[in-house]
Design a protein around this nucleic acid. Structure first.
Lengths: 324, 324
DNA sequence: AAATCATTTTTGTCTTAGACAATTAATACC
DNA sequence: GGTATTAATTGTCTAAGACAAAAATGATTT
């Protein structure tokens, strides 16, 4: 039962370096208690200290390494290959497995081999914990560039850059959270401004994500672009059960169901979901999918139209309009 | 990366009448796997069926009873007294211990014994899948009532009403999702309008929720009220690991860390989280907690200031200002 | 009575070691 | 190069036992 209360006998106030019990590590790392124990048994890591009653006490270092391991597993690596590595090796793998850092960025700019200075400035605002500068910088860029270029050429690559920086350990989770929060505010503000002065037309689009998919930024970017293009968007936010997606599509008489997938999804889950959705949705209802999920583009999808890049959204709308 | 969600949301064993595996029951009831097993050993309930490989399969009835038991435990009853009771006895105890059903709604209106007509109208807009009417109704009410009364007397009770309607099967999940999405837009718009024309002062408040806590509406309502009151808010959105909450509080030099808890949290998790946060945050940093989580108010909290109702927020700010 | 302290019961969580099914990698075969 | 078959990997489950924090009970004093 010794949960998070570090040893009472030793030093009550400043004993946080004694180690974290297994339940705390589960919450910090997202790795289940059973998994932690079985890793210790199989791979010899982590081997935590024990308190007076034999319970595990993980050091802060071990927890840090576990976080790195957890990130590597998200990249598709197997536990047997990474769990027993030391800190340096983990770091090396992380920098190696992070996709080309400025690959996406360079494509968005006109042959600019260096990173966009605006993006660098915004990244700096995140790293220095300056939400006002971040908010101001984003709003300003949105007004200057216009909504569509802002989303496609700035927000999307910046989000990728932040995600990569986090994966490489250059950003903490809370810094990514703050970025998400501020950008969400800017995007929602833009969408709200649009909807108030727009004639409802175009396809009626239902926007959401499947369960387990928590990323909401992609959804918001799509909503912004579609709304800008004159579509009538209804967003359900993230994590809607498949049954409810179908129900909602019927209830709102949606012409299109648009789903966003991040790379955290298992390919099997993605394909199964799409197949089931396609089977249960009316034939007349189109299914559009997009996002950073690699599983969407590796195999040709018969069930849905896959949009790998946000710039592919507008042609899809034009195509739909032409067909109706 | 197993994110604490043992089974897929949609169809754990596909055949729902066969029974739920123990991980699904943990998610449904909030009772830990160890607890479920030790109850079976000690009190003889629940005694689930087993699948071909000996794993437990809980019937829907047992899960239902476990939910009732869990609620009774939140009221302070002891497991030995309730775990082995049958369904009827549990129901009896619940009606005995249940608080006033419409207490929140009736308190908000001036002696109005019927539900607020505006709330009824908005509930109707949700049920008829009319996002524009919902959006318009909420925005209009916000402008008419003013932000603080809108949040306290309309948004909060309406959210409760929607949650209850969903629990009773009168709303589908996608209808609740739509409501959440629209209200989020309205609240964020109000907050954005505030921050653009406000002098930064008051306490610097860091807003977020602990992992596993996904509800973002409460957080937004609090952010609206605090910002209105002149506080400088930094929100990290939902589900920030405890370590990062501490890091963020330091990085942003927060005077206050404010957390929101919904009722889906295990009481043990809530108390453990608060204790650990309190231990790791600077003594000068205040800890404010609120939300619908009964565990916050059942026992006196020494670690944090608990705000059961949104109207209690402003006094807390005033008190902080007076002390500084 | 009421309050303080010591003792017993209750209760959730942790421990061990083993087992199994589902996924993923590797191999053989056409 | 594909494709079916076998082998390895991996997360989760089970069992009974143990222990400390919390709660209830009892004894003693104010």
């Amino acid at each position: 039962m010794n949960l998070l209360t570090p040893p009472i006998d030793s030093t009550p106030p400043a004993s946080s370096d004694a180690g974290l019990p297994i339940a705390a590590v589960e919450r910090e790392t997202g790795l289940g208690k059973d998994t932690l124990r079985v890793w210790e048994r199989r791979y010899g890591f982590p081997t935590p200290l024990r308190d007076s009653s034999g319970d595990r006490l993980y050091s802060a270092e071990q927890v840090q390494q576990l976080k790195l391991i957890s990130r590597l597993l998200d990249f598709g690596l197997r536990p047997s290959k990474v769990v027993s590595l030391d800190n340096a090796a983990l770091q090396a793998l992380l920098t190696q497995h992070a996709p080309a850092p400025a690959a996406i960025l360079s494509k968005t700019n006109i042959g600019n081999d260096a990173t966009d200075p605006v993006i660098k400035e915004l990244l700096h605002a995140i790293g220095t914990h300056d939400p006002r500068a971040l908010q101001h910088g984003l709003s300003h860029a949105q007004l200057r560039m216009g909504l569509a270029p802002f989303v496609i050429d700035l927000a999307a690559p910046l989000t990728t850059a932040v995600g990569e920086a986090w994966a490489q350990g250059r950003f903490e989770i809370f810094e990514e959270h703050l970025y998400t929060e501020v950008l969400t505010g800017v995007l929602r503000h833009a969408i709200a401004s649009l909807t108030s002065q727009l004639v409802p037309q175009g396809p009626r689009v239902l926007l959401t994500t499947v369960p387990q998919e928590q990323h909401s930024l992609g959804l918001l970017m799509v909503e912004a672009l579609l709304t800008l293009d004159g579509c009538t968007c209804v967003s359900l936010g993230t994590q809607t059960p498949l049954t409810d997606i179908v129900q909602a599509a019927l209830a709102h008489r949606a012409d299109v169901v648009a789903l966003s997938f991040s790379n955290m999804n298992k390919t099997a889950v993605v394909q199964t979901s799409l197949r089931e959705l396609r089977a249960r949705l009316p034939t007349a209802t189109a299914l559009w999918v997009g996002g950073t999920c690699t599983a969407l583009y590796q195999w040709p999808l018969s069930e849905a139209s896959a949009v790998q890049h946000l710039s592919g959204l507008q042609p899809l709308v034009a195509q739909w309009r032409h067909a109706h």
